[in-house]
């Protein structure tokens, strides 16, 4: 038996197809990313460390991580509500509701950005009443959070929906007939099944939020140390010809993306294993 076995061998075209795939992948994705890592490694480790530990960079990274995490958690909660209602209940307007979930996927981020900013600005439709309540949204971290929840919502809904639909409600009935209360049936029977897609959706939302630029940059106000997110700081540094600083921060973001991608693979394997 050969070690490197390609199955099946009856079909032609494996070599050329894999060749096109790997060539495209290398030229478009891997080589440019390698250029980033190479540029980042060209300097000394001390210089890299100094570039990513300035107070402004640390503040931007902390803001990006914390807000993305919070928004992912909130998107998960809303995703749970929306997917439950869309899968389990039948009511007028359900299909429209379901179709609208995809809006943040489809709407260009710059459009989302200027629209949310206009809505939540101190004189906006939603911003004005909120400001009167003493809750300014636009140009504060809360505004960034709103944009990230907007963006993260479809990820959690769309990962939960198929799993929830595949779960047989009869199982809950069985649990109920065996004496479990409704709450206990949900907690013991449903929750273990929903946990993997919930975590997968939240991780997807987190990964997207961490790197997001377009829908956040308008509403954030971009005050250094206060509302400056990491991707924007990369852009700012580049515009100020601080290529080394931009590259160092971008490397941190790239490594985080890669780690999240590996985590997602593990989560998917877990979900597949759990449901066989």
């Amino acid at each position: 038996m050969r070690a490197a076995r390609v199955t099946p061998s009856l079909l032609p075209g494996f070599g050329p197809a894999l060749g096109v795939t790997l060539l495209g992948l290398s030229l478009v994705v891997l080589a440019p990313l390698a250029a980033l890592l190479a540029t980042s490694l060209r300097g000394s480790p001390a210089a890299f460390l100094a570039a990513v530990t300035t107070p402004r960079v640390v503040a931007a990274l902390r803001l990006s991580f914390l807000l993305s995490l919070g928004a992912a958690a909130f998107s998960a909660l809303l995703g749970l509500l929306l997917s439950w209602v869309l899968v389990r209940y039948r009511f007028p307007g359900r299909r429209l509701l379901d179709a609208l979930i995809d809006l943040p996927f489809a709407l260009p981020t710059a459009v989302a950005g200027i629209t949310l900013t206009t809505l939540y600005a101190p004189n906006g439709w939603l911003g004005a009443p909120l400001a009167r309540l003493g809750v300014p949204v636009a140009f504060t971290p809360l505004g960034i959070g709103v944009a990230l929840v907007f963006l993260g919502l479809p990820f959690t809904v769309r990962t939960l929906q198929p799993v929830l639909a595949s779960l047989d409600a009869e199982v809950e009935d069985a649990a109920a007939s065996l004496g479990a209360g409704r709450f206990e049936a949900v907690r013991r029977v449903l929750f273990p099944e929903l946990l993997p897609p919930l975590l997968t959706g939240a991780t997807l939302a987190f990964a997207r939020g961490l790197g997001e630029y377009g829908s956040v940059v308008f509403i954030s106000g971009n005050m250094p140390m206060k509302t400056e997110i990491a991707p924007l700081l990369v852009m700012t540094k580049l515009e100020q010809y601080d290529v080394a600083g931009a590259t160092a921060l971008a490397t941190i973001l790239l490594v985080a993306s890669f780690a999240l991608l590996l985590l997602l693979n593990r989560l998917e394997a877990w979900a597949a294993g759990g449901r066989r």
């Binding site: 990369v234 852009m235 590259t247 971008a250 999240l260 991608l261």
Partner: peptide, 19 residues
């Protein structure tokens, strides 16, 4: 690796081509 561009920040994606 094919999924990588979905996870990478668009700003990082732009920066790599500038570099």
């Amino acid at each position: 690796l094919i999924d990588l561009p979905f996870a990478v920040s668009p700003i990082v994606a732009g920066l790599v081509f500038v570099l």
